[in-house]
Design a protein around this nucleic acid. Structure first.
Lengths: 104, 104
DNA sequence: CACTGTACCTTGCAATGCAAGGTAGTGGAT
DNA sequence: ATCCACTACCTTGCATTGCAAGGTACAGTG
């Protein structure tokens, strides 16, 4: 897979999942990696940025299988942004597909 | 539109067009900009890279409406690469759409 | 002869992702 | 008891890509 495809789209993937329920960082990596490549070195800085931009907020929760998990919960602001981002993605990918199949 | 979406995908757009017929740089900008944002500052360095990687080769042609045009012609190597890239894009975008609509 | 449109190009910056590393907690195997 | 594997968090430095802003040059029009 072209690693450059991920650029900018991973943010949307993370937000799209967090719009459905709370996740902790490691869980996001595991879930997303079933669909596209992602590494921990990508997700943690991304989550920090999303927190700074107030799209999500965090809380800690104990775990029986390791250190405490940092969960991410989406804000109302984040939900709105996510919906716009997904709409942009749909438009974008539709346009790219048109361009690829263009008769020139 | 999220400008990050373009990352890596503009390369595929350029190659997909050049797989159909020869284009000159400025013409590529005009054509692609009907479907997604692109600037000249993006296309010329990209075309240089594609030339260095032997996906395309160039030839000059006089024009009656300005300076000579530099046309880009795809190599066999480039055609093969383009087909793979388009297949990768289809897989990638399908997976992203699955992820977005995932029930979690 | 200035102006507009065409067409080429470069430089410096910003954004994003990744590999490679590090830190800690839990529980099982030796 | 000690080591290992797994979970889970994190940071640093690098590479890639795109863009804005600028520059150069040719042709036709006023």
């Amino acid at each position: 897979m072209n690693p450059q495809f991920n650029k900018g789209i991973l943010e949307m993937c993370v937000l799209a999942l967090l719009a459905k329920r709370d996740f902790y960082g490691f869980e996001l990596v595991e879930t997303i990696s079933n669909y596209t490549d992602i590494s921990e070195g990508t997700i943690y800085p991304l989550l920090r940025r999303l927190t700074q931009e107030k799209y999500v907020e965090t809380y800690l929760q104990e775990s029986t299988s390791g250190p405490p998990r940092k969960y991410y919960r989406m804000t109302r602001h984040g939900k709105k942004f996510t919906q716009e981002l997904i709409q942009d993605w749909k438009n974008f990918s539709a346009n790219v597909n048109k361009l690829i199949h263009l008769e020139v």
